[in-house]
Structures are given as structure tokens and as C-alpha cells.
């Protein structure tokens, strides 16, 4: 599952541009994750701030 650390996120949209599933969307200052997210982790890698993290589902 993709976890967004909202205290770190700077809502810049860098992650949105690389998401191959079109799962992310920047709604002004709020990053939303849609159901098509596959937890591939590309967004977490490129985030300039480290605001995204793929965490294992329990």
C-alpha cells in the first residue's frame, strides 16, 4: 500500500508525472491515490522529499 507522509509532502506533482497507472492526482495541495495503484514504488523513489512510502499490508 502507498503511504503518503502528508507532513513531508510538498504537493509538487513530481510523483504524478511518473505514475504508470495514472493513480496519483494532485488536487491543489492534496495528493490523492486512486484504486489503480499497484504499489510499484516508482513515485516513492523519485519524490524529491521522501514523502511517499510503500508499506506492506497487514
Amino acid at each position: 500500500m502507498l503511504k503518503i507522509h502528508r507532513d513531508i509532502c510538498g504537493y509538487c506533482g513530481c510523483c504524478v508525472s511518473v505514475c504508470p497507472e495514472g493513480a496519483l492526482e494532485l488536487i491543489d495541495a492534496y495528493l490523492s491515490v486512486g484504486e489503480t495503484c499497484t504499489s510499484c514504488g516508482i513515485c516513492a523513489k523519485v519524490c524529491p522529499l521522501g514523502a511517499l512510502e510503500v508499506v506492506n499490508e497487514k
Binding site: 509538487c12 504524478v16 508525472s17 511518473v18 495514472g22 492526482e25 494532485l26 523519485v46 522529499l49
Partner: peptide, 26 residues
Amino acid sequence: DGVESKFSKWCGIDTTVPAREIMSSV
């Protein structure tokens, strides 16, 4: 709609930037 563009994607056009070709910036 800028780097975070979604509109064209919704219209069926692939706009995904390859990870190695996004400048991650601060």
C-alpha cells in the same frame, strides 16, 4: 495542465514520464 497533467491521460493518451527522465528537484 503542467507537469502533473492528468487530462490527456483521461483522454487515453499516455503521458507517463520515465523515472530516469524526471528531474527530481528542490
